[in-house]
Nucleic acid binder design. Structure first.
Length: 814
RNA sequence: GCCGAAGUGGUGGAAUUGGCAGACGCGUCGGACUCAAAAUCCGAUGGUAGCGAUACCGUGUGGGUUCAAGUCCCACCUUCGGCACCA
């Protein structure tokens, strides 16, 4: 079969008959299947895209044939850093390169033959989309969920620009090699932490992979502990968070993150230490959080010269700065208990600080640092308590004396959404010298992204250089004001795109509430596991926020989630241009056609695992479709005599069994996205058809042709163009996708006997056929009576007989 | 470093969740068809020993639980994903 022309033929037909367009009339029966949209970075569709979209489309088609009205849209996450970097390198404007890439990818996606509903297509870089991303920002601002604060960014002092983490290589700027510093900058944040508890709590009710839920849980990082206040000489209070208030009597010193605001105060009160402090702050600014949190990193720090007072003992405690404390976690300060914390212990040993043991191992020798629960000693009236009891008692006492109390802390931080970049949605805020920060009125949206901008680094955001963009009037006082020069993190665009797909042309609102409530949440969302913590968490947060603002009646965006695995390069490494191991799907699609390429992706890998690319099996898939074509062709010639016998003889029963076995297993496996096993069952069925075709001279033609029709129906989701062609070839006038997926006939699967494995003392001795429907006693009797087994049982007594119905019998003999 | 996964024949991968390890393919070997090749079809194929029935070994490594472990528990090794400005 000429796959290419067949593909074009059916793609054109589907478009004409609107086969892939969601029919709103059947909304009650909807199934929203969504693949993560793609970022148009390269000019071409990648194997990874194919691997995500091809098999998932087969799932969607399968569900369609089960009678669901499937909505499967596609679009482009079009803003982002790579297009801007490309522009800096080549001078090609991000808008131009992005639009060109999208045009190419659209063509490739259409040639893939997936049943995407292109009438719902969205591109996040278009005004009619980002207008509503800006609207979303304003709603969050109104709700108090968007605010400004200082935050650290990677700063290249020689390029005078903010760098993405990706652009920092071993602490140096990827462009110029300068040492990258961490610098404070005022940025917009979304208060995702307000939803920490709900985001955690909601995980239980999601049909998501357990590992993903666990990762999100750890990312949110709830810990229950205690806040404790330490008074300083300067009159300030250092508040620390600890999960181990039971060790509070063992505090030897207090440590602040180098970025802590109190550092300035300490420099003033101890000017003799200022130089050392500055040097250390500089040193810390050169490291990233991952390195700083590494337990393998050499502990470093500097004494501030100042002291704090222990809230319970009144002891004077030296105050240090150390980079193993992060300003972004907890309060940015910790109480150091050298005897009972690994890092504090290492630090204390290095700087010659005292180590005070206050916990004793219950019933054993205590080796320091001892970090487990134990019995309190040297802890005043709390001696003898342990674990939760001690933590509770101390927390209650601290509350009573006003020096702290119980506190729940989350590792989750608020989401920084400002980017000092050009290619993104402008932040719809205005800075007025009189009125301060003022939101752009909704009726003035979108704040359009100007085309003419110098996006090379100038020390400021690229938009800041465009005067006509920056200049505006304050909506409140009418005076001269300027726009926010930053753009939004692209993750903001992708938090709500699943809603826009439902209502992509709406120019009155971001989406219709009524439609959203009917069509969403997404029933099945498919994408890479690399999004486990960020995109997937942000989308959940925004959905909950929209619910609280009464734009939605549901609170989770993605009911079910499936991760496809990652296809690596043939060398086992992640595909990348620099490694030269990128595999292009195009040459395979050209050579074999998109159906065969899709079939191979489904058959050759475990969908959720992925793995290194190899094309060993792709030819065999092409043989498989050839074999099917030959079978179908041959069946066309068979005609039944007028007085044909329609009784099913053993050969027909055998084939019927094979067919129903395949239907049953495929129907189950498709639900789990187990495409490789589904196709294995399909191959077994084809083998059975071939055997019947070859072995049975007097065919039951009507029955056999029915089996061929079912084969085409069964194959349709996996090889859509090929199956349509076969369906037409066998004389059908409709689309095979208007057919129902064959249902299993359980009667055909009933057999009189089942094969059992027979073990003696857990070793397999024989395999026997045992009639169905016997009691355990009868099964044991049957097995023991079997000559081969009886022989081996001679002179022994059966002490125990374990029977697993339909599988195995294990005789324990002595 | 921390969080989360994965490791099964020569190879891609199965294994109904504790019940016959290796389904279905690829590859290899043997055979049929052919002047020959391709294509197609049939058969064999985890390892070791044996003519053979068969026996022993075998799911990253080492221990453990169990009548029974690829699957559960403990320790370790290797690889992969994420770590908050790649998306």
């Amino acid at each position: 079969m000429d796959m290419k022309s067949v593909e074009r033929k059916w793609q054109a037909k589907w478009e004409k008959t609107k086969l892939n367009v969601f029919n709103k009339k059947n909304m009650d029966n909807k199934l929203y299947v969504l693949e993560m949209f793609s970022y148009p970075s390269g000019a071409n569709l990648h194997v990874g895209h194919w691997y995500n979209y091809g098999p998932t489309d087969s799932y969607a088609r399968f569900k369609k044939m089960q009678g669901f009205e499937v909505f499967q849209p596609m679009g482009f996450d079009a803003f982002g850093l790579p297009a801007e970097n490309y522009a800096i390198k080549t001078g090609i404007h991000p808008k131009d390169s992005t639009e060109k890439n999208i045009a190419t990818m659209e063509q490739q996606l259409k040639h893939m033959g997936a049943m995407f509903d292109w009438t719902a297509e969205i591109k996040t870089c278009e005004e009619n989309y980002y207008k509503w991303t800006q609207w979303l920002f304003l709603q969050l601002y109104k709700k108090g969920l968007a605010y400004r604060k200082e935050a650290l960014v990677n700063w290249c002092p020689s390029c005078e620009t903010v760098l993405a983490n990706e652009q920092v290589i071993n602490g140096e700027c990827e462009r110029c090699g300068s040492v990258v510093l961490r610098k404070d900058m005022t940025q917009w944040f979304f208060k995702i932490t307000d939803y920490a508890e709900e985001l955690l709590d909601g995980l239980d009710r999601l049909e998501w992979p357990e590992k993903t839920k666990l990762m999100q849980k750890n990312w949110i990082g709830k810990s229950t502990g205690c806040e404790i206040n330490f008074e300083c000489e300067t009159g300030d209070t250092i508040t620390v968070f600890t999960t181990r208030p039971d060790t509070v009597f063992g505090v030897n010193y207090v440590v602040l993150a180098p970025e802590h605001p109190l550092v300035e105060k300490f420099k003033e009160s101890h000017p003799e230490n200022a130089a050392a402090i500055d040097a250390y702050v500089q040193y810390a600014a050169e490291a990233n959080d991952i390195d700083r949190l590494s337990t393998a990193r050499e502990k470093t720090g500097v004494f501030t010269g100042s002291y704090a007072t222990h809230p319970l003992t009144g002891k004077k405690l030296p105050i240090y700065l150390a980079d193993y404390v992060l300003y972004s976690y907890g309060t940015g300060a910790v109480m150091a208990v050298a005897a009972h914390d690994e890092r504090d212990y290492a630090f204390a040993k290095k700087y010659g600080l005292p180590v005070t043991q206050v916990i004793q191992k219950a019933g054993g020798e205590t080796v320091l640092p001892f970090c487990e629960d134990g019995i309190l000693v040297n802890s005043g009236s709390f001696d003898g308590l342990s674990g939760d009891e001690a933590r509770n008692a101390i927390a209650v006492h601290l509350t009573k004396i006003g020096k702290g109390g119980k506190k729940v802390n989350y590792r989750l931080r608020d989401w920084s959404v400002s980017r000092q970049r050009y290619w993104g949605a402008p932040i719809p805020m205005i800075h007025c010298p009189k009125c301060g920060v003022v939101p752009v009125p909704e009726k003035e949206l979108p704040v359009k992204l100007p085309y003419d901008v110098e996006f090379r680094s100038t020390g400021k955001s690229p938009l800041a250089s465009n005067e006509s963009f920056m200049k505006c009037t304050c909506p409140e006082c009418g005076g001269k004001a300027s726009r926010d020069p930053d753009t939004l993190d692209t993750f903001v665009c992708s938090t709500w795109y699943y809603l826009r797909y439902l209502d992509p042309k709406n120019d009155k609102q971001a989406f219709s509430k009524e439609l959203a409530n009917k069509m969403a949440p997404v029933d099945v969302y498919v994408g890479g596991p690399e999004h486990a913590c960020m995109h997937l968490l942000y989308a959940r947060f925004i959905t909950k926020a929209l619910r609280d603002m009464h734009y939605l009646d549901f609170d989770e965006p993605f009911k079910r989630l499936v991760h496809q695995g990652i296809i690596l390069g043939p060398d086992g490494n992640r595909m990348s241009k620099s490694k030269g191991n990128v595999v292009s799907p195009d040459k395979y699609v050209d050579e074999y056609g998109s159906d065969i390429f899709r079939l191979y992706l489904m058959f050759g890998f475990s969908y959720t695992e992925g793995g290194p690319w190899n094309d060993d099996g792709i030819k065999s898939i092409s043989k498989f479709t050839d074999r099917i074509e030959r079978l179908v062709q041959a069946s066309l010639k068979y005609t039944a005599p007028a007085n044909a016998n329609t009784e099913k003889k053993s050969a027909e029963k055998e084939l019927d069994f094979a067919k129903n076995h395949a239907i049953k297993n495929i129907t189950r496996d498709m639900e789990y996205f187990s495409f490789n096993t589904s196709l294995a069952r399909m191959m077994e069925y084809v083998n059975a058809l071939q055997k019947y075709d070859a072995d049975v001279a007097e065919k039951n033609v009507a029955f056999y042709k029915g089996c061929i029709d079912d084969l085409i129906r069964m194959l349709a989701p996996f090889a859509p163009h090929f199956s349509e062609e076969l369906w037409e070839m066998t004389g059908h006038k409709n689309s095979v996708f208007e057919e129902r997926y064959p249902l299993v006939d359980e009667k055909a699967l009933v057999r009189d006997e089942t094969e059992y494995a027979v073990q003696i003392n857990s070793k397999i001795k024989a395999k026997l056929m045992i009639p169905e429907g016997l009691s355990d006693e009868d099964i044991q009797a049957t097995v023991c009576a079997y000559p081969e087994i009886a022989e081996q049982l001679q002179g022994k007594t059966v002490k125990k007989c374990i029977i697993v119905k339909g599988r195995l019998v294990n005789l324990i003999v002595g």
